[in-house]
């Protein structure tokens, strides 16, 4: 039966891999405890049964990889040049269009600038004569007339 001094499952795993700190105390316990020794032995047995993962690389693999990496790099480089030239052309076209159009924009602005004045004049025409409104006597007469009409 496992006692409280026995190694936990995680400690056993770490002990197996030599990753358990203070392993002297654990080693002492393992020397005395038959249960822990059996558990460790079962762990060793299971992990020893795992197949080896030895990768067999042929001698030409390096050359092949170097060639494929080089090809990829060239392809990226080739893709980069048209993209760069296309963006350069676009920037150039933008600069040209700005320089061609900018002198024409000023007259447009000069044509547009009187428009607010014109609008202001038309507004003034619609407005009633201020002098007329200022004539209080006339306003009083108008008020009198409206009272008479009301009666």
């Amino acid at each position: 039966m496992i006692s409280k001094n026995c190694l936990s499952e995680q400690d056993l795993t770490l002990y197996y891999y030599g990753e358990l700190s203070a392993s002297v105390a654990h080693a002492d316990h393992l020397a005395d405890c038959l249960i822990c020794r059996k558990r460790l032995s079962a762990l060793r047995h299971d992990l020893a049964k795992l197949p080896n993962l030895n990768y067999e690389s042929d001698a030409a693999a390096g050359t092949r990889m170097a060639a494929s990496v080089s090809e990829k790099l060239n392809k990226r480089h080739r893709n980069w040049i048209p993209a760069l030239s296309a963006s350069a052309i676009a920037v150039f076209a933008l600069v040209i269009s700005i320089s061609v159009w900018s002198p024409q924009r000023q007259p447009v602005q000069s044509v547009q600038s009187p428009a607010p004045l014109h609008d202001a004049l038309s507004l003034n025409e619609d407005m009633p004569d201020i002098e007329f409104l200022e004539d209080l006597e006339l306003l009083k007469e108008l008020e009198l007339l409206s009272q008479i009409e009301g009666v």
Partner: peptide, 22 residues
């Protein structure tokens, strides 16, 4: 000198593919 990079690739290919495969 791009041939230097080729040398690096050739030197490390087996180990890198081995690790990736595992």
């Amino acid at each position: 000198d791009e041939s230097g990079f080729e040398l690096l690739v050739k030197e490390h290919t087996g180990k890198v593919i081995g690790l990736a495969w595992r």
